[in-house]
Design a protein around this nucleic acid. Sequence first.
DNA 1: CGAGCCGTTGAGGGGATTCAAGCTCAGTGG
DNA 2: CCACTGAGCTTGAATCCCCTCAACGGCTCG
Lengths: 242, 242
Amino acid sequence: MNVVPLYKLDERHPQALACAKCAVREHALFGALDHDGLDRIHTHIASHEYAADTVILRAGDVGDSLFTIRSGIVRFERSTEAGERRIVRLAGRSDLIGQESLLRLAHQDDVIACTEVHVCRIPRSLVQELGHAEEAITQELMRRWQTALGEAQAWMTNLSTGPAARRMLHLVEKLQAHADGRGLIWLPRREDMGAMLDMTFETASRLVSQLKREGILTLEPPRHARVNAERLRHAIAAFAAG
Amino acid sequence: MNVVPLYKLDERHPQALACAKCAVREHALFGALDHDGLDRIHTHIASHEYAADTVILRAGDVGDSLFTIRSGIVRFERSTEAGERRIVRLAGRSDLIGQESLLRLAHQDDVIACTEVHVCRIPRSLVQELGHAEEAITQELMRRWQTALGEAQAWMTNLSTGPAARRMLHLVEKLQAHADGRGLIWLPRREDMGAMLDMTFETASRLVSQLKREGILTLEPPRHARVNAERLRHAIAAFAAG
DNA sequence: CGAGCCGTTGAGGGGATTCAAGCTCAGTGG
DNA sequence: CCACTGAGCTTGAATCCCCTCAACGGCTCG
């Protein structure tokens, strides 16, 4: 893990600039703040980065900060009572994670970097102070909680329902939403796909191979792929039809 | 749907008494308020009741109130893109539903009464005013959002993972948490079980029959049953072991 | 009483798992 | 340089779990 105070990101500019110019600012928690607001907070926020497959939050721990994801993808993992690993959610650019720290509640899942991940670390105390002064922040926090709830339930209906092939198509669709530059998506390891879709890694592998044959996916190792969006939508529609 | 202003529930007492004596008050949203606080709000809150299988909130609608469940069980339903019905969550006594109304967001699911349900209807505006004055209310709201999120993800890991028999056991376990008086639990229709556990109603029926044979469940029609808690825990543990 | 809904149970087939073998590829050390 | 190793991916074959299709009984209600 690498720590860089945000206000040093560009030393030629005044400190506030880093936050003001933040690429995800309009989508992030503090997007609701004006420039004066930003002036008050930026010194407390630090930029961190995590390599792929490193743990960002650990289930059971009580955190003292929240994180806005600037780039990369993270996964929320927990274990079944039977002991199997299950991935219950993904989060990416501009998503807020670790909100439970505000309530001094323990994290419910391990949060692990899927790709290299850049975040802004925001101390709990800062959010709480702002919450008093700025009505908008509280509102924005609730909105994010509601979004996370919706995400979790959509995950259930799309990724844990129906035949394996359909679940896989929906996963690809979701990964597409996190695509970087030009249509290149991050493709999980087969075992992780299994943990997301509740299937064995062999089944996941077979399905990926099939998508490859059908021209929906073009693998670009390591762990990336290109999607034929047209064919993907068509394949998903085929399931709805019959 | 039946509407009864709360303050008339007992006309021999001053209005505030209804809220102050509310059986779920300490677990409900306004549990954080003191008696003075209650004095200010109770006239705005009304008690409603819904018969089993009636719709309380409709997906797509934008509500103007929140509801605290005083008794009964409700289910959150949505549809797969393929058109199948899926139940993504249950809520019961002292749970808060319709929080998205605060954000003027549409409901994401149909919320339907499973049993007869009694609720307190709380206008959005009331919560918003209190949110300004009472820090504790805002805090409590966030806590409830977080609880709902945790519920949704636990639902995923327990009720949509692994072999059908285990999923059914976990459902019974969850229903037990909503048990009324003495160990009598509400037992869904087989088709609804299917929508909860992503299986066909025939499979659900077979599994219930099996639990009956194993002495874990004793049916008490209509739509109720008694659970042998000891054997249930044993059966769940058996899956963890092997 | 017949109609309809709900629940149960059987028989057969299909889809996912299990078990197993072989492949590529990166890293390691001789 | 290359054999060696181990992790990840793919594919095959056999098995099993769950779905599909079907028939039937109990119950409520018009």
